[in-house]
Write a protein that binds this DNA or RNA. Structure first.
Lengths: 334, 334
DNA sequence: CTGAAAGCGCTAACAT
DNA sequence: ATGTTAGCGCTTTCAG
């Protein structure tokens, strides 16, 4: 292995000069700079970045904790994070936690042990079930929920849900079902809040039996659709808390012979790519996933670099996209 | 910052003992082990892993280079990589290259500068356009193509394409269109090879006009469908080189009033989750993405740990999944 | 602008 | 089993 000392010897200079030539070339004479370059080339010298980081005590690395990297929404957020990090000369360490707080602990430890400078968490904050915030570790919560007690970036989930449901109501729907995420999930909570607000503002009474708990995955959407299908007084529209369940529900209803949107309107949440592809295309809420990632990374870097000290919350606008899966309520044409 | 020396002082032991207590607790007396533990707890000591890595000259990190992390197939491969790496105590650094070889260079440099021990590349090997293999950097190509000159993990793309097309032919189709990836893409090449083999083995002459070049993205599928639609002698089946273009093509044909599969059969490649959701569901080839990731990581770790020295190629079985988007050829019922 | 030298926090001989 | 000590490769004063 060739070290900085070898280069120094080859160039007939001191290690200090080599070091400076590498980090602050403008403070080294042109003549010596050339010598250094030549020596490096000749010896094929590659600085040991581990030593560099150790010595300078800065990892230039952030870790991203994600419950499931094979989830397109998360992948997009990460993509945004990566691009900002890269531009700033930071590396991103991937922390697939599989929703295990044990693993989260390991990843947080990385910043405590100086392997990383900060962490971005893609799992929304939940009281009594969160390792963050933690003193001494810079962190931001990306795609967070209301009331996150550390820096966070999100959309107004409640507001978006409210908007969707109001739209449905304005279309004449009165019995509006919900396929929710797990009830313990913070996003479920926020979106539920919006649903309730919409009903209330329009003077519609809440009917608990119209809420079926899902888990944000495909099969729970199928199963919920089945349950709705067999209801005596079936809702004329269903607000699904993500696109995956919405698409599943559509499939479930279609397989039972219902037409969408003529017989039942469906809305999703997230605007995955697929939502444009499915037949009928899905009315949904678009979250700027990539931008959420970018903003999160920017905020974290600002904290790491000491440009910002207090916690901040950044709320992105969402976009309500009306497609083919919803239509005005019409009396059953059984 | 509290260092190992502080702990030593607090515990009344030497730094050497503390170090050993941390790495080889079995070689330290129980009594002292307790003292160490107490001191660590009291001082809230966190070992500086940067120092550790520097000293031991091992990063325990692998980097994954991916052309686009927001591509579900890649995300799944990464998920597999992560789980193996994690289990082995390795971290994974994410390298979103956006298909730029400049960025690839930076990431490869990470292993040259000891920041990482090896690299997994998700971009298939292409002659005269590859920074890998490179002396001194352990690497494996995941989801690779035929003829990759370093360790690689893939499925038999040509074989899979052959199988799909033969199936179509056995169903009575004779004019079989292709929506390919970019012609320069190695996977396009391998799959094209399978297509040609299938035609030849069944005595069907190749018609170049039936191949439309796409780029693996949605819009290219739409545009290709449009072109096929306007052909005088339209094919009765279209082999698409990935699911995204297949789904787009279906949408394109449906919007023109064609029925799938009655008027035209469509096949995909990859078996994305969506492919089960779309209407009609898509006949396609499933690649074990997660397993490809796992195997790649295992191979890389074996190389890093010196268990394996020569290059290996691992070929996973694929799965041909027949769904609703294909059916037997019938004379036009115009 | 350059060189000398100290030392970052830790590990791993080696000696005890 | 434990302590002592010499660095790992680099950066960064501090003199010159």
């Amino acid at each position: 292995m060739t070290t900085i000392r070898d280069v120094a010897k080859e160039a007939g200079l001191s290690t200090g000069t080599i070091s400076k030539a590498l980090s602050h070339p403008e403070r080294v004479s042109k003549k010596n700079l050339e010598k250094v370059e030549a020596a490096i080339l000749k010896l094929n010298y590659k600085p040991n970045m581990l030593a560099q980081k150790f010595r300078s005590n800065t990892a230039n690395t952030i870790v991203v904790m994600v419950p499931d990297i094979a989830n397109l929404f998360f992948a997009k957020v990460i993509s945004g994070i990566e691009s900002v990090a890269q531009r700033a000369g930071y590396n991103v360490l991937l922390g697939d936690t599989r929703d295990s707080s044990n693993k989260e602990k390991d990843f947080i430890r990385m910043v405590e042990t100086r392997l990383a400078d900060g962490v971005i968490n893609l799992r929304p904050y939940k009281e009594n079930d969160s390792l963050l915030p933690k003193a001494g570790v810079f962190a931001v919560s990306a795609s967070s929920c209301e009331g996150t007690p550390y820096s966070s970036v999100r959309i107004d989930n409640a507001g978006a849900a409210n908007k969707v449901v109001r739209h449905l109501i304005q279309q004449g729907h009165k019995r509006i079902g919900v396929i929710s995420g797990l009830k313990t999930n913070p996003h479920t909570r926020d979106r539920m809040k919006g649903y309730l607000q919409a009903l209330e503002s329009q003077g519609i009474e809440f009917d608990e039996s119209l809420v079926i708990e899902g888990d944000f995955n495909y099969w729970s959407g199928i199963s919920a659709a089945e349950q709705f299908y067999h209801m005596e007084n079936r809702p004329s529209a269903v607000f699904c808390m993500n696109d995956e369940m919405a698409i599943a529900a559509m499939k479930g209803f279609i397989d039972k012979g219902l037409r969408i949107p003529q017989d039942i309107s469906i809305t999703g949440f997230d605007d995955m790519d697929v939502s444009k592809y499915v037949v009928p295309t899905l009315t949904t809420v678009a979250q700027p996933a990539e931008k959420i990632g970018e903003k999160s990374a920017e905020m974290l870097l600002d904290m790491i670099q000491g440009k910002v000290t207090e916690n901040k919350e950044y709320v992105f606008p969402y976009e309500f996209i009306i497609r083919e899966s919803t239509s005005a309520f019409t009396e059953k044409t059984k």
